[in-house]
Design a protein around this nucleic acid. Structure first.
Length: 379
RNA sequence: GGACAGGUGGCGGAGCGGUCAAUCGCAGCAGACUGUAAAUCUGCCGCCCAUCGGGCUACGAAGGUUCAAAUCCUUCCCUGUCCA
């Protein structure tokens, strides 16, 4: 157990002796986060379509994500600071992790330029130029007041040549060192995580991780995944990297995954994950259930009086039929997004709770085997 | 009774001699979505076989002109607006 410094203390509670799976408690200035954890994504200081009260009471999520690039542009981090910080601004009392904008280096690749100094974005809102540097990105996140900040990284595309990945990864590591030097001078009560890159090259991943470990960070992330690569590659990169990261620090794989993939990352020794899939897919009518994916607009649900997922205890599944949800979706009613998002996130969080329980009870290998044999509804 | 304007695929609505099985929108059917430029995007959508592709029937009805007609002409039927 590391001491409470830099706003974060990670307490390892149990470790699966067969796999690398871990269960722990992450103590943040805004509450305790039980790990392994799935973090709902609230890019623009809102988990789309849900009220914080629902995220807290219905989902019991302990930590959510937000985004530095988006909040920097709108409403502006200084405004958020003036209004008392992100927690107060969005009325979310629990923990918040902010991504740095590194993902936007990939997702907004057409409107940005990476230089040695940092990333020059042309705002997707109005075209204005904004330079993000390793230092400025830390400052922005300090202004936002998130519990866990992420270093500025370059999320490189897939496929990419080895040379391109190698030089990009070296730069990302230089940025991480700069970010940490700056961060430590600020003496903030917020954690900062560096991000392992290295594309789909395991040796570059290992090299990168080994270097970042020198920073003695309060936690470590594995990034650069979910950029279009085959899923077995994503998992392979995690498995190559996680064992090199400090046992006593939380490990975060950024941007994953599908419901059935979550347990695989946990088995690989991962403590934290996030993904837009449950929330975005919900709004697009794709619902995750213990019986698999339900595309609610399909004609087969027109007269389906049953609950979305009989095995789910969420508000949506307790109170509404598939036929009603289908109606709401086709009628483009706002309530659909609310009910669908609530369910999908509950589904993800429940999966993680079951996984965590299994680890604590020493039952994880059996759960993993059952999930892989598809005998279990972790999908 | 008269004068105009129209009748196009489930609906709305383009097309006005060949490149038209026919733009587009809606509805319908299916698919995608992985650190959110996403309440978004993609495909199919006359019938039959089919992998490319091929065949058939079609633009109110019936005739006609033409190498060629949803597009031009004639008659008829129907709809809307206006005038008696």
């Amino acid at each position: 157990m590391s001491e409470l410094k830099e706003g974060l203390r990670f307490e390892l509670q149990a470790q699966c002796p067969v796999t690398g799976a871990r269960a722990g408690l992450m103590h943040t200035p805004h509450g305790i986060v039980e790990t392994p954890v799935f973090m709902p994504v609230g890019t623009q200081a809102t988990v789309k379509s849900l009220m914080p009260r629902q995220i807290e009471e219905e989902l019991d999520a302990k930590i959510i994500l937000s985004n530095t690039y988006h909040l920097y542009l709108r409403p502006g981090h200084e405004i958020v600071r003036q209004l008392g910080g992100l927690h107060k601004f969005m009325n979310w009392p629990r923990a918040i992790l902010t991504d740095s904008g590194g993902f936007q280096v990939w997702s907004l690749s057409k409107i940005r330029k990476v230089t040695e100094e940092g990333v020059l974005f042309h705002s997707h809102l109005n075209g204005d130029r904004h330079l993000f540097t390793p230092e400025s990105t830390v400052d922005t996140q300090i202004a936002l007041g998130s519990d866990i900040m992420m270093v500025l990284d370059e999320c490189i595309e897939y496929p990419a040549t080895r040379d391109a990945v190698a030089s990009s990864t070296r730069r990302t590591n230089r940025w991480a060192a700069q970010a940490f030097a700056h961060y430590r001078r600020q003496n903030a009560n917020q954690a900062l995580f560096p991000i392992v890159q290295g594309g789909m090259y395991t040796d570059l991943r290992r090299e990168c991780a080994a270097e970042l470990v020198e920073l003695d960070a309060p936690g470590y992330a594995i990034g650069g995944l979910s950029v279009g690569e085959p899923r077995d590659l994503s998992l392979a990169m995690v498995e190559a990297t996680a064992p090199l990261l400090p046992v006593a620090k939380p490990r975060y794989v950024m941007g994953v995954g599908k419901p059935e993939e979550l347990i695989e990352y946990v088995a690989g020794g991962i403590d934290m994950m996030d993904c837009v899939m449950p929330s975005r897919n919900a709004r697009n009518g794709c619902l995750f259930t213990s019986g698999g994916k339900v595309v609610i607009k399909n004609a087969q649900y027109r007269e389906d009086a049953g609950p979305l997922d009989p095995a789910c205890s969420c508000y949506t599944c307790r109170n509404f039929s598939r036929a009603y949800l289908r109606h709401l979706f086709l009628a483009e009613e706002i309530l659909f997004s609310v009910l669908a998002t609530l369910h999908n996130l509950k589904h993800y969080l429940d999966i993680m709770r079951r996984i965590r329980q299994a680890i604590l009870l020493g039952d994880f290998p059996r759960l993993l085997a059952a999930a892989r044999a598809a005998e279990l509804d972790l999908k």
